[in-house]
Design a protein around this nucleic acid. Structure first.
Lengths: 165, 165
DNA sequence: TATTGTTATACTCTATAACTATA
DNA sequence: TATAGTTATAGAGTATAACAATA
């Protein structure tokens, strides 16, 4: 550990990456044996909030591919936390609903994850936490609204190819 | 697409995940052929800011394991963007320095990534962007200060084991 | 013909341990 | 004995394409 000055990055990417890293680390420790960890929690949470939604709707909301959603739902169903039920109007689709155990566990999970969020934002005042949450939510809602399809949102940086080519 | 109401999550985890997803998506498209994409960019950026740092110092700052850092540096060196040099005082360590090409490219990359950040935060006013950046930075600096070792920062949620056990 | 869900394959990323050379 | 860097292995996670059932 020589005493070189490490950069003080004003880089949003660095901050985002570090925050997510910490969040995942704390959450993984909290969630313990929950199938699929954070993703499992988010599926449970979304199913509870949007009861009657199909697998694809949940997946789209979470930014998860539908092929992965199958495995997630499999694991959560095996653990007895949710069930697949026939969709009332579309026989291709499956509706997801929480079991009694799933609902009970979700209550605990939400409190546990609130602790994680609090710990992550321990440096901030209550008002600052609300501000961060609100700003991040606006950014993310906009991001979720135009997912991958918008291919040419930002063209590639031509200089890269030139200097590396 | 049935007309079920999708949840409007006040969940910080959802927002963080979505924002990062979008950021990575945009950045990957921008960075094109740059070795190791975003991580490659961050290494270059950190090397430039903390010139004379060892591989391990760079890795620690970025939250990257030292075994992965080897591959990252290999790729960037092969592309002619940086070089390993003997450390002046510690013969075990390697100092990383950008090549002329690396410095030139980094200038382009920084402008490109600034575009990505602007696009990601398009919903926000200039003042709100600064606020988001500042709050996120405070959270991340604190997170980086106490990395993984702090094992029992938050104990596991006992109810999970009980209900799943 | 398009869409929901499933399955199978391969590929990428990451975590772990072991090795070397220095300190 | 501990640390910086490297290498190799296995495991988790992810992307892709193909299939069956239904719209």
């Amino acid at each position: 550990m020589t005493a070189h000055a490490l950069p003080d990055p004003a880089d949003l990417g660095w901050a985002l990456g570090r925050a997510v890293q910490r969040y995942q680390d704390l959450a993984a420790r909290k969630l313990g044996a929950l199938p699929s960890g954070i993703r499992g929690f988010r599926v449970l949470s979304t199913v509870a909030a949007g009861s009657g939604c199909s697998q694809l709707e949940i997946a789209t909301h979470l930014g998860i591919d539908r092929t992965q959603m199958t495995y997630l739902v499999d694991d959560l169903a095996t653990a007895g936390l949710l069930e697949r039920q026939p969709h009332p109007t579309d026989r291709r689709a499956r509706t997801l609903v929480l079991t009694a155990t799933g609902e009970e566990l979700l209550g605990h999970l939400e409190r546990a994850m609130a602790e994680v969020e609090g710990y992550l934002m321990a440096e901030l005042s209550a008002g600052e936490r609300d501000t961060l949450r609100a700003l991040l939510l606006r950014v993310s809602v906009a991001a979720a609204a135009e997912p991958a399809p918008n291919g040419d949102a930002l063209g590639p940086c031509a200089a890269i190819e030139q200097l590396l080519g």
